[in-house]
């Protein structure tokens, strides 16, 4: 290793350091997109999951097939359809729609699993105290399902957060986009820039998961969770 190569490497890290502000400017858009996509996915996915378990034959079938189609399509394809195909704009809306639809399909699946893991006796007991089927679903099954939902949601958070990076392809100014635009001015710093961007994602994953651990502790049912 020559001194020249060493100083070059230092220069690249200096470049990263000087432009850290630009890179970090992508954090909020990434977090915001993760938040909106997860929320949209939650609002659509939870009813869909319930529909798959308790819905009529036709509606459950439709929900299942739609889920298979969406889960079988790459997020990149979905995002290009919402942005270039359907022409949703700005990029934030197209990205939210794409990540939201995909997340809804997965959250429906996680929520369905959570509902199905609840002991049958719970439903019977709810009907036995005189609740209607809908009442039982609403007051007994869904509250329990939601609490068992948190561990699966954690996984979903990590996936959505990492996939916000794909929105750089539709020019959404998140972390990866910012980083990518820093390359042309100092191409030798490419590896350093990628490593730094990766570190930012890693930090966000870890922090987010700790927060969700806390949520699980706060809302999980003691001994009633399916969190193994």
């Amino acid at each position: 290793m020559t001194a020249a190569a060493l100083s070059l490497a230092t220069a690249d890290w200096t470049y990263v350091w000087q432009n850290l502000g630009t890179l970090l400017r992508g954090v909020w858009p990434a977090v915001r997109l993760t938040g909106t996509a997860l929320l949209a996915g939650f609002l659509v996915g939870v009813p869909l999951g319930a529909l798959e378990v308790y819905g009529g034959r036709r509606s459950a079938w439709l929900a299942r097939k739609a889920g298979v189609a969406v889960r079988g399509t790459p997020i990149l394809v979905i995002m290009f359809i919402t942005y270039f195909g359907l022409g949703l704009s700005p990029a934030f809306v197209a990205a939210t729609a794409a990540l939201g639809v995909r997340s809804a399909a997965y959250q429906a699946q996680v929520f369905r699993g959570a509902l199905q893991s609840i002991d049958r006796g719970q439903m019977e007991a709810a009907r036995a105290v005189g609740l209607s089927k809908l009442g039982a679903i609403r007051h007994v099954m869904i509250p329990q399902g939601l609490r068992r939902f948190v561990p699966g949601f954690q996984n979903e958070y990590t996936i959505v957060l990492k996939d916000t990076s794909i929105a750089f392809a539709i020019s959404y100014t998140e972390i990866f986009y910012q980083m990518y635009n820093l390359i042309p001015q100092q191409t030798t710093a490419t590896p350093e820039l990628f490593v730094t961007a990766a570190a930012v994602y890693l930090a966000l994953t870890l922090v987010g998961n700790r927060v969700l651990d806390y949520v699980d502790d706060a809302f999980g049912v003691p001994d009633g969770g399916a969190s193994q």
């Binding site: 990590t158 990492k162 996939d163 990076s165 794909i166 750089f168 990866f176 990518y180 390359i183 490419t190 590896p191 820039l193 990628f194 490593v195 961007a197 990766a198 994602y201 890693l202 994953t205 870890l206």
Partner: peptide
């Protein structure tokens, strides 16, 4: 490390970095 970072970043790092 691998599971906590996006696959796009890993691919780009290998290809461009």
């Amino acid at each position: 490390l691998i599971r906590g970072t996006p696959l796009v970043a890993q691919l780009f790092l290998l290809y461009y970095g």
